[in-house]
Amino acid sequence: MRRVRARTRRRFVLTPLVDVIFLLVIFFALSSRIAPFGLIPVSGQGRAVAGAEGSETASRTVAPADETLVVLRGRARLGAQVYALDALRPAAVRLREGGARSVLLLTARSARTEDVAKALDALRRAGVANVRLISAPADTAGTRGGAGPR
């Protein structure tokens, strides 16, 4: 005679699931970065081209450009005018409207990455398509083309 087993209803145990999810949350909270990143293309077709004047890999000759922008710490010099980097964009727009197609961006020794990024961003937003990025060699900085980076 077959004995009919009473079906015992198992209860769904949530604790291991919760443990794993907590571990996942801790992992993502510690290892991820939530920040509004943006990208500035620095080299490629029709974009800014980086060249390290004075480095072993780059050529020492620099092709002429329509304008030279010297980036200093917090400022930029365009010809005889000195602009705060936050106010560079209108000047870059005037530059483009004046017919300048290519800009040589020369970083001074005092310039930081943030200054370079701000200058590149201002030129990009002003629609200056051809920007070449160079840094003056340490020994000749301040003598190239009459623009004295400080």
């Binding site: 990143f37 080299s43 060249g51 890999t57 930081r112 990455t113 990025l133």
Partner: peptide, 30 residues
Amino acid sequence: AARDLSGSVLVQILGEASAAGAATSLVVLN
């Protein structure tokens, strides 16, 4: 790149990467 990194060092590194055959893009924060 760190925001306080020397601009000259940044340009040199970008130039070396370009010379090695890569297109480069600078990551910034809004």
